[in-house]
Simulated assay, not measured.
Amino acid sequence: MSRIAPMRPPFEKPEKLTAAEKRAGKDWMKRVKQLPCVICGAPAPSDAHHVIHGRYGHRRAPDKQTIPLCKAHHQDGPEAIHNGKKKWAEKHGFDYEYLPQVAAQIGEVDF
């Protein structure tokens, strides 16, 4: 079972990250980019997509809540999540549902 940080209402300021948390997030994203696309299996390097389904406002998800997507499924193709997240979710499910799979691929047991 994955542990996803609870979402805050849009009016609450997020807590500031420590330097160690920032480094851990950057390391996580570096490893995510080395994975194939979770949708089509296109080989790495992938984009580290911060999950957007179920988020409040425009605040970006934490770096540990990223999934590997090829350019076509991330930003550039007709099926890109940033070209229509509702249509993408209807076809592929919610992006956050892939977080446990990504953690397992990275070998992160305590996700």
Rank of each mutant, 00 (worst) to 15 (best):
R31P: 01
K26D: 14
A61L: 06
L17M: 11
M29Y: 00
A19W: 12
K64R: 15
E90I: 00
R31L: 13
H53K: 09
A19F: 13
K13M: 10
G54W: 06
K64S: 11
G57E: 09
A89M: 11
G54F: 06
A44C: 06
H53W: 13
A42D: 11
E90V: 01
A5H: 06
R59D: 06
H50F: 02
D47W: 15
P6L: 05
I106Q: 03
H53G: 05
K16P: 15
R8V: 00
A89P: 11
A19L: 14
I4H: 03
F111S: 09
A24F: 04
L35G: 01
V109K: 14
K71D: 08
R60K: 13
K30Y: 00
F11D: 15
K22N: 10
A44P: 04
D95S: 11
K64M: 08
F111M: 10
P78C: 02
H49Y: 03
P62I: 01
Q75A: 13
Y56W: 12
K85D: 14
P100M: 05
C40R: 07
V109C: 03
G41Q: 06
A104V: 07
Y96I: 02
W28M: 12
E12F: 08
R8C: 00
I39H: 07
E79D: 15
I106H: 08
A48T: 03
K86T: 13
P62W: 02
E12R: 14
E79S: 04
H50C: 08
H50D: 12
S2E: 09
E12W: 06
R60T: 08
W88K: 03
Y56F: 02
C70H: 01
A20R: 15
I52M: 14
D63H: 10
Q75H: 11
N83V: 00
Q101R: 12
E79F: 05
P100F: 01
P45F: 03
K87A: 15
A103L: 02
A44T: 05
D47H: 15
I39N: 08
Q75V: 12
P10G: 11
E97Q: 13
W88L: 03
R23S: 11
A72I: 08
E97L: 12
V109M: 06
V51E: 04
H92R: 11
T18L: 09
Y96G: 01
G77A: 05
G57W: 04
L17A: 14
H82Q: 10
D76Y: 07
A44D: 02
D63M: 11
I39D: 10
A44N: 03
A89R: 13
I106N: 06
G25H: 07
I52K: 14
D27H: 09
K22L: 14
K16R: 15
L99P: 04
G77F: 10
Q101P: 00
Q34N: 13
